[in-house]
Computed example of a mutant assay.
Amino acid sequence: MHKLDTIELFVKLLSYPSVTPNDEGALTFIRDYLDGFEAEWINRVNVKNLFLYKKFGEGPHLCFAGHIDVVPPGDGWGSDPFVPKFENGFIYARGAQDMKSGVAAFVQACREAEHFNGTLSLLLTSDEEGDAKHGTIEVLKYLEEKNFLPDYAIVAEPTCEEVFGDAIKIGRRGSINGIIEKIGKQGHAAYPEKAVNPIHKVAQVLPYIAGVDLDEGDEFFAPSKFVITDIRAGMEVTNVTPGKLKMMFNVRNNTKTSKTDIESFVDRYFKDMNYILTLNQSAAPFMTDKASKIVKAITAAIKDETGIDTKYSTAGGTSDARFLAEFGVDVVEFGVKNDTIHAPNERTTPEEVEGLKRVFDEVIKSF
Protein backbone atom coordinates (compact mmCIF):
# COMPACT_ATOMS: atom_id res chain seq x y z
CA MET A 1 0.00 0.00 0.00
CA HIS A 2 1.34 3.47 -0.84
CA LYS A 3 2.56 5.61 2.03
CA LEU A 4 0.40 8.44 3.40
CA ASP A 5 1.64 11.35 5.42
CA THR A 6 0.77 11.35 9.12
CA ILE A 7 -2.29 13.60 8.84
CA GLU A 8 -3.64 11.75 5.80
CA LEU A 9 -3.38 8.55 7.81
CA PHE A 10 -5.05 10.20 10.80
CA VAL A 11 -7.97 11.45 8.68
CA LYS A 12 -8.36 8.00 7.14
CA LEU A 13 -8.66 6.39 10.60
CA LEU A 14 -11.10 9.05 11.80
CA SER A 15 -13.38 8.22 8.88
CA TYR A 16 -14.14 4.73 10.18
CA PRO A 17 -17.32 4.81 12.37
CA SER A 18 -15.71 2.32 14.75
CA VAL A 19 -18.01 2.49 17.77
CA THR A 20 -17.22 -0.25 20.33
CA PRO A 21 -16.90 -3.17 19.63
CA ASN A 22 -16.78 -2.58 15.87
CA ASP A 23 -13.65 -1.67 13.96
CA GLU A 24 -15.52 -1.17 10.64
CA GLY A 25 -12.46 -2.31 8.67
CA ALA A 26 -9.93 0.03 10.32
CA LEU A 27 -7.78 -2.83 11.64
CA THR A 28 -7.65 -4.51 8.24
CA PHE A 29 -6.54 -1.21 6.73
CA ILE A 30 -3.75 -0.90 9.33
CA ARG A 31 -2.64 -4.47 8.67
CA ASP A 32 -2.38 -3.74 4.95
CA TYR A 33 -0.66 -0.40 5.59
CA LEU A 34 2.03 -2.15 7.67
CA ASP A 35 2.67 -4.86 5.13
CA GLY A 36 6.27 -5.20 6.32
CA PHE A 37 5.06 -6.50 9.71
CA GLU A 38 3.90 -9.99 10.59
CA ALA A 39 0.20 -9.93 11.49
CA GLU A 40 -1.82 -12.09 13.85
CA TRP A 41 -5.53 -11.83 14.60
CA ILE A 42 -6.59 -12.73 18.13
CA ASN A 43 -10.34 -12.26 17.79
CA ARG A 44 -12.65 -13.08 20.68
CA VAL A 45 -16.48 -13.15 20.65
CA ASN A 46 -17.44 -10.07 18.57
CA VAL A 47 -14.14 -8.21 19.13
CA LYS A 48 -11.28 -7.90 16.66
CA ASN A 49 -7.73 -7.73 18.00
CA LEU A 50 -4.67 -7.27 15.79
CA PHE A 51 -1.05 -7.89 16.78
CA LEU A 52 1.67 -6.78 14.37
CA TYR A 53 5.39 -7.27 14.88
CA LYS A 54 8.76 -6.98 13.18
CA LYS A 55 12.03 -8.32 14.51
CA PHE A 56 14.94 -6.05 13.64
CA GLY A 57 17.50 -7.52 16.04
CA GLU A 58 18.08 -9.43 19.27
CA GLY A 59 17.37 -6.54 21.66
CA PRO A 60 14.27 -5.67 23.70
CA HIS A 61 10.66 -5.96 22.56
CA LEU A 62 8.94 -2.55 22.46
CA CYS A 63 5.17 -2.50 21.89
CA PHE A 64 2.89 0.39 20.94
CA ALA A 65 -0.64 -0.31 22.16
CA GLY A 66 -3.99 1.33 21.60
CA HIS A 67 -7.61 1.00 20.61
CA ILE A 68 -9.38 1.79 17.37
CA ASP A 69 -12.87 1.85 18.92
CA VAL A 70 -14.59 5.04 20.04
CA VAL A 71 -17.57 5.94 22.19
CA PRO A 72 -20.87 6.80 20.45
CA PRO A 73 -20.86 10.36 19.08
CA GLY A 74 -23.94 11.59 20.99
CA ASP A 75 -25.69 14.86 20.25
CA GLY A 76 -24.45 18.42 19.91
CA TRP A 77 -21.98 18.09 17.03
CA GLY A 78 -21.47 20.93 14.58
CA SER A 79 -20.59 18.46 11.82
CA ASP A 80 -20.70 14.76 11.02
CA PRO A 81 -18.51 13.13 13.71
CA PHE A 82 -17.12 10.60 11.23
CA VAL A 83 -16.35 13.11 8.47
CA PRO A 84 -13.21 14.87 9.78
CA LYS A 85 -13.53 18.64 9.61
CA PHE A 86 -10.63 21.11 9.52
CA GLU A 87 -11.58 24.43 11.10
CA ASN A 88 -9.58 27.17 12.85
CA GLY A 89 -6.50 25.00 13.15
CA PHE A 90 -8.31 21.97 14.60
CA ILE A 91 -9.44 18.60 13.28
CA TYR A 92 -12.92 17.69 14.53
CA ALA A 93 -14.11 14.06 14.67
CA ARG A 94 -15.03 11.38 17.18
CA GLY A 95 -11.79 9.74 18.27
CA ALA A 96 -9.63 12.76 17.40
CA GLN A 97 -8.08 12.72 20.86
CA ASP A 98 -9.23 9.34 22.20
CA MET A 99 -7.31 7.81 20.59
CA LYS A 100 -6.95 7.70 16.82
CA SER A 101 -4.37 10.48 17.05
CA GLY A 102 -2.16 8.14 19.06
CA VAL A 103 -2.83 5.18 16.77
CA ALA A 104 -2.01 7.21 13.65
CA ALA A 105 1.21 8.50 15.23
CA PHE A 106 2.60 5.12 16.23
CA VAL A 107 1.44 3.32 13.08
CA GLN A 108 3.27 5.91 10.99
CA ALA A 109 6.36 5.81 13.21
CA CYS A 110 6.52 2.02 12.96
CA ARG A 111 6.03 2.05 9.19
CA GLU A 112 8.94 4.48 8.79
CA ALA A 113 11.25 2.67 11.26
CA GLU A 114 14.29 1.34 9.39
CA HIS A 115 16.45 0.32 12.34
CA PHE A 116 15.68 -0.91 15.85
CA ASN A 117 17.77 -2.95 18.23
CA GLY A 118 15.08 -5.52 18.96
CA THR A 119 11.44 -6.17 18.11
CA LEU A 120 8.81 -3.53 17.37
CA SER A 121 5.15 -4.47 17.75
CA LEU A 122 1.68 -2.95 17.73
CA LEU A 123 -1.24 -4.21 19.80
CA LEU A 124 -4.62 -2.92 18.61
CA THR A 125 -8.11 -3.70 19.87
CA SER A 126 -11.71 -2.70 19.19
CA ASP A 127 -12.75 -3.31 22.82
CA GLU A 128 -11.37 -0.62 25.11
CA GLU A 129 -14.24 1.81 25.52
CA GLY A 130 -16.61 -1.02 26.49
CA ASP A 131 -16.13 -3.80 29.02
CA ALA A 132 -12.59 -4.50 27.75
CA LYS A 133 -13.07 -8.20 28.48
CA HIS A 134 -12.22 -9.48 24.99
CA GLY A 135 -9.56 -7.00 23.90
CA THR A 136 -6.03 -6.25 25.07
CA ILE A 137 -6.10 -8.73 27.93
CA GLU A 138 -6.88 -11.58 25.52
CA VAL A 139 -3.97 -10.60 23.27
CA LEU A 140 -1.64 -10.56 26.27
CA LYS A 141 -2.82 -14.02 27.34
CA TYR A 142 -2.06 -15.25 23.82
CA LEU A 143 1.39 -13.62 23.80
CA GLU A 144 2.18 -15.09 27.21
CA GLU A 145 1.39 -18.57 25.88
CA LYS A 146 3.73 -17.88 22.96
CA ASN A 147 6.44 -16.50 25.30
CA PHE A 148 6.32 -13.28 23.29
CA LEU A 149 5.19 -10.64 25.78
CA PRO A 150 6.77 -7.22 25.24
CA ASP A 151 9.40 -5.93 27.65
CA TYR A 152 8.19 -2.34 27.37
CA ALA A 153 5.06 -0.65 26.07
CA ILE A 154 3.71 2.78 25.19
CA VAL A 155 -0.06 3.26 25.23
CA ALA A 156 -0.86 6.34 23.15
CA GLU A 157 -3.85 7.55 25.18
CA PRO A 158 -4.27 11.35 25.38
CA THR A 159 -2.36 12.46 28.49
CA CYS A 160 -1.40 16.11 28.13
CA GLU A 161 -3.17 18.72 30.23
CA GLU A 162 -2.44 22.30 29.15
CA VAL A 163 0.07 21.97 26.31
CA PHE A 164 1.40 19.08 24.28
CA GLY A 165 4.21 17.33 26.13
CA ASP A 166 3.36 18.45 29.67
CA ALA A 167 2.32 15.07 31.12
CA ILE A 168 2.78 11.34 30.75
CA LYS A 169 1.17 8.66 32.86
CA ILE A 170 3.46 6.20 34.59
CA GLY A 171 0.67 4.62 36.62
CA ARG A 172 -3.07 4.56 37.13
CA ARG A 173 -5.37 4.21 40.07
CA GLY A 174 -7.49 1.11 40.32
CA SER A 175 -11.25 1.06 40.75
CA ILE A 176 -13.15 -0.89 43.41
CA ASN A 177 -16.95 -0.87 43.41
CA GLY A 178 -18.80 -1.76 46.56
CA ILE A 179 -22.31 -2.44 47.83
CA ILE A 180 -23.28 -2.45 51.49
CA GLU A 181 -26.68 -3.93 52.33
CA LYS A 182 -27.74 -3.04 55.88
CA ILE A 183 -30.43 -5.42 57.09
CA GLY A 184 -33.02 -4.00 59.50
CA LYS A 185 -36.55 -4.87 60.52
CA GLN A 186 -39.49 -3.29 58.72
CA GLY A 187 -42.15 -1.66 60.87
CA HIS A 188 -44.73 1.05 61.38
CA ALA A 189 -43.35 4.56 61.60
CA ALA A 190 -45.55 5.19 64.65
CA TYR A 191 -43.86 2.36 66.57
CA PRO A 192 -40.14 2.79 65.95
CA GLU A 193 -39.30 0.75 69.05
CA LYS A 194 -40.73 -2.36 67.37
CA ALA A 195 -38.58 -1.98 64.24
CA VAL A 196 -34.90 -1.68 63.34
CA ASN A 197 -34.56 1.27 60.98
CA PRO A 198 -31.45 0.77 58.80
CA ILE A 199 -31.51 4.41 57.71
CA HIS A 200 -31.05 5.57 61.28
CA LYS A 201 -28.28 3.05 61.85
CA VAL A 202 -26.32 3.98 58.73
CA ALA A 203 -26.82 7.71 59.34
CA GLN A 204 -24.76 7.36 62.51
CA VAL A 205 -21.68 6.17 60.64
CA LEU A 206 -21.93 8.30 57.48
CA PRO A 207 -19.82 11.16 58.90
CA TYR A 208 -16.97 8.70 59.45
CA ILE A 209 -16.99 7.10 55.97
CA ALA A 210 -18.40 9.54 53.40
CA GLY A 211 -15.57 11.12 51.37
CA VAL A 212 -12.91 9.86 53.77
CA ASP A 213 -9.33 9.32 52.59
CA LEU A 214 -8.28 5.70 53.14
CA ASP A 215 -4.56 6.49 52.87
CA GLU A 216 -2.26 9.50 52.50
CA GLY A 217 -1.33 8.98 48.85
CA ASP A 218 2.26 9.59 47.79
CA GLU A 219 4.45 11.51 45.34
CA PHE A 220 2.44 10.28 42.35
CA PHE A 221 -0.93 9.11 43.69
CA ALA A 222 -3.75 11.05 45.30
CA PRO A 223 -5.26 9.43 48.42
CA SER A 224 -7.74 6.60 47.90
CA LYS A 225 -11.13 8.11 48.75
CA PHE A 226 -14.34 6.37 49.86
CA VAL A 227 -16.94 7.92 47.54
CA ILE A 228 -20.60 7.09 48.19
CA THR A 229 -22.55 7.05 44.94
CA ASP A 230 -26.06 5.88 45.89
CA ILE A 231 -28.20 5.23 48.98
CA ARG A 232 -31.74 3.88 48.81
CA ALA A 233 -34.26 2.28 51.14
CA GLY A 234 -37.98 2.12 51.77
CA MET A 235 -41.11 2.05 49.60
CA GLU A 236 -41.63 5.81 49.14
CA VAL A 237 -44.30 5.93 51.81
CA THR A 238 -44.23 7.85 55.06
CA ASN A 239 -45.73 5.34 57.47
CA VAL A 240 -43.42 2.32 56.96
CA THR A 241 -39.80 2.13 58.07
CA PRO A 242 -37.68 0.05 55.68
CA GLY A 243 -36.35 -3.42 56.30
CA LYS A 244 -33.18 -2.94 54.27
CA LEU A 245 -30.88 -0.17 53.04
CA LYS A 246 -28.56 -0.44 50.06
CA MET A 247 -25.54 1.83 49.73
CA MET A 248 -23.19 1.85 46.72
CA PHE A 249 -19.69 3.31 46.71
CA ASN A 250 -16.52 3.52 44.64
CA VAL A 251 -12.87 3.75 45.64
CA ARG A 252 -10.31 4.83 43.05
CA ASN A 253 -7.50 3.12 44.89
CA ASN A 254 -3.78 3.67 44.67
CA THR A 255 -1.18 1.02 45.43
CA LYS A 256 -1.52 1.61 49.20
CA THR A 257 -5.15 0.49 49.53
CA SER A 258 -6.48 -2.96 48.62
CA LYS A 259 -9.82 -4.76 48.71
CA THR A 260 -8.80 -6.24 52.08
CA ASP A 261 -8.16 -2.75 53.45
CA ILE A 262 -11.63 -1.66 52.34
CA GLU A 263 -13.23 -4.72 53.95
CA SER A 264 -11.52 -3.82 57.24
CA PHE A 265 -12.54 -0.17 56.92
CA VAL A 266 -16.22 -1.03 56.37
CA ASP A 267 -16.25 -3.58 59.18
CA ARG A 268 -14.82 -1.04 61.58
CA TYR A 269 -18.08 0.95 61.35
CA PHE A 270 -20.60 -1.76 60.50
CA LYS A 271 -19.41 -4.64 62.69
CA ASP A 272 -22.21 -4.13 65.21
CA MET A 273 -24.82 -4.11 62.43
CA ASN A 274 -26.31 -6.88 60.34
CA TYR A 275 -24.78 -6.13 56.93
CA ILE A 276 -23.58 -7.72 53.69
CA LEU A 277 -20.59 -6.28 51.80
CA THR A 278 -19.92 -6.99 48.12
CA LEU A 279 -16.72 -5.74 46.48
CA ASN A 280 -15.62 -5.90 42.85
CA GLN A 281 -12.23 -4.69 41.65
CA SER A 282 -12.79 -3.67 38.03
CA ALA A 283 -9.24 -2.37 37.64
CA ALA A 284 -6.04 -2.81 39.63
CA PRO A 285 -3.66 0.08 40.32
CA PHE A 286 -0.15 0.02 38.88
CA MET A 287 3.02 2.08 38.88
CA THR A 288 5.98 1.92 36.50
CA ASP A 289 9.29 2.86 38.12
CA LYS A 290 10.36 6.30 36.95
CA ALA A 291 13.86 4.86 36.49
CA SER A 292 12.56 2.36 33.91
CA LYS A 293 14.17 2.50 30.47
CA ILE A 294 10.85 3.33 28.80
CA VAL A 295 10.10 6.22 31.15
CA LYS A 296 13.55 7.69 30.58
CA ALA A 297 13.34 7.22 26.82
CA ILE A 298 10.00 8.94 26.33
CA THR A 299 10.88 11.70 28.80
CA ALA A 300 14.00 12.50 26.79
CA ALA A 301 12.10 12.32 23.48
CA ILE A 302 9.43 14.75 24.74
CA LYS A 303 12.16 17.13 25.91
CA ASP A 304 13.85 17.00 22.51
CA GLU A 305 10.57 17.63 20.66
CA THR A 306 8.93 20.23 22.90
CA GLY A 307 11.58 21.57 25.28
CA ILE A 308 9.28 20.62 28.16
CA ASP A 309 10.25 18.69 31.30
CA THR A 310 7.20 16.45 31.34
CA LYS A 311 5.24 15.69 34.49
CA TYR A 312 4.72 12.14 35.74
CA SER A 313 1.01 11.64 36.40
CA THR A 314 -1.37 8.92 37.59
CA ALA A 315 -4.55 10.98 37.28
CA GLY A 316 -7.72 10.00 35.47
CA GLY A 317 -9.64 6.79 35.09
CA THR A 318 -8.44 3.45 33.76
CA SER A 319 -6.90 2.36 30.48
CA ASP A 320 -5.58 -0.81 28.86
CA ALA A 321 -2.17 0.03 30.33
CA ARG A 322 -3.38 -1.73 33.46
CA PHE A 323 -3.45 -5.05 31.60
CA LEU A 324 0.10 -4.62 30.33
CA ALA A 325 1.28 -3.86 33.87
CA GLU A 326 -0.57 -6.93 35.14
CA PHE A 327 1.56 -9.07 32.78
CA GLY A 328 4.80 -7.53 34.04
CA VAL A 329 5.35 -5.09 31.17
CA ASP A 330 6.93 -1.71 31.97
CA VAL A 331 4.31 0.63 30.50
CA VAL A 332 3.82 4.37 30.07
CA GLU A 333 1.08 6.39 28.43
CA PHE A 334 1.63 9.42 26.24
CA GLY A 335 -0.57 11.16 23.71
CA VAL A 336 -2.09 14.46 22.66
CA LYS A 337 -3.88 16.94 24.89
CA ASN A 338 -6.90 15.57 26.73
CA ASP A 339 -9.65 18.18 26.96
CA THR A 340 -12.49 17.07 24.65
CA ILE A 341 -12.51 13.27 24.91
CA HIS A 342 -15.98 11.68 24.82
CA ALA A 343 -17.49 15.16 24.33
CA PRO A 344 -19.34 16.61 21.33
CA ASN A 345 -17.00 18.26 18.83
CA GLU A 346 -13.96 16.28 19.98
CA ARG A 347 -10.89 17.81 18.39
CA THR A 348 -7.11 18.01 18.24
CA THR A 349 -4.54 19.83 16.12
CA PRO A 350 -2.43 18.52 13.24
CA GLU A 351 0.64 19.91 15.02
CA GLU A 352 0.05 17.72 18.07
CA VAL A 353 -0.44 14.57 16.00
CA GLU A 354 2.71 15.26 13.99
CA GLY A 355 4.60 16.11 17.20
CA LEU A 356 3.46 12.85 18.78
CA LYS A 357 4.70 10.90 15.76
CA ARG A 358 8.11 12.61 16.04
CA VAL A 359 8.32 11.72 19.75
CA PHE A 360 7.68 8.08 18.85
CA ASP A 361 10.29 8.33 16.06
CA GLU A 362 12.83 9.48 18.63
CA VAL A 363 11.96 6.73 21.11
CA ILE A 364 12.41 4.09 18.40
CA LYS A 365 15.68 5.67 17.25
CA SER A 366 17.21 6.10 20.73
CA PHE A 367 15.87 3.04 22.56
Rank of each mutant, 00 (worst) to 15 (best):
E128V: 13
S175F: 03
P158A: 07
E216R: 11
M247C: 09
I276G: 05
G59K: 14
V353Y: 00
E305T: 07
F148D: 02
T306Q: 08
V205M: 15
Y142K: 09
V251W: 00
V237Q: 12
N345V: 05
D131P: 04
I176L: 06
V19I: 15
E112C: 11
F323H: 05
L120W: 06
T348P: 01
Y208L: 14
I170R: 00
I209W: 02
E162R: 11
K48N: 08
G243H: 03
V329M: 09
A195K: 04
P285L: 07
S101T: 07
K271P: 01
A297L: 13
T255E: 11
E354M: 09
V240N: 03
V70I: 10
A167S: 13
S366Y: 06
P223T: 06
E351I: 09
D23L: 05
V331C: 11
E144N: 14
N177A: 05
F82H: 01
G171S: 06
I276W: 08
P17F: 11
G130E: 06
W41D: 14
V205E: 02
D230S: 12
A283N: 15
A301Y: 00
F323L: 06
S292R: 07
S15P: 04
V163Y: 04
A291N: 12
S15F: 05
S126N: 05
W77L: 07
F106K: 00
I364D: 01
N117Y: 06
A233E: 10
T257E: 05
H67W: 06
P72R: 09
S292L: 08
P150G: 09
N338K: 12
N345F: 07
Y152W: 14
S121I: 08
V295W: 00
C63A: 13
V47N: 05
S258P: 08
Y142D: 10
K271W: 01
G184M: 09
I231M: 06
L124Y: 03
E181M: 11
K259A: 06
S121Q: 05
R347D: 02
G171L: 03
G211R: 10
I91W: 01
T28V: 12
E145K: 14
S282I: 15
K337W: 03
Y269C: 06
K201V: 09
V359A: 07
K146F: 13
D272L: 11
